[in-house]
Amino acid sequence: MKIGVLAIQGDFAEHIVMLKRLGAETAEVRLPDQLSGLDGLIIPGGESTTIGKLAEDFGLLEPLRKFGKTHAMWGTCAGAIFLSKDARRNQPLLGIMDITVVRNAFGRQVDSFEADLDLPELGAGGPYHAIFIRAPIIESVQGSTKIIASLADGRIIAARQGKMLATSFHPELTRDARFHQYFLSFIK
């Protein structure tokens, strides 16, 4: 199994470490032709405006949209924003997942936090410790999108639509590989 990580900007190296731990082959993706031969793609955390702008400048938007129609794709934080249909702001998006997101929904960096979540989708292993960095929330989901996790106050922080996954937190910053394992299970 070969998983690409979009390596335009952000914490792509952290995702690669996690994928290698799980025995997957990995590839950094910066240009459209690097998508060929991949079974799935992760869009990492970073700055969504930077990632969007460079994806546009290097002709990646259409190839990524096409890839997402047939392959597993997961966006963490900035990556989730990039996947969304609507980020309430004018910036380049893939627009392939039926979610509306709100950027920096918890405030500025001093409001960034860690919290334990109940995540039945991940199966056994106890609560999932999640790290939120200037995180977005998923304000609403549409179409066939399913909510995977919410905070106690009901705000949505993870969602899945078919083989597409969006999380407002960063499993790649933890040592808990369950979320990456979950994503790999989308790929037959």
Partner: peptide
Amino acid sequence: MEQQTGTFTVKKGLAQMLKGGV
């Protein structure tokens, strides 16, 4: 569900989000 702010993990985490950037 207790939320912890200002931990070294979230401080370091923001810098990790800046990687590969200017």
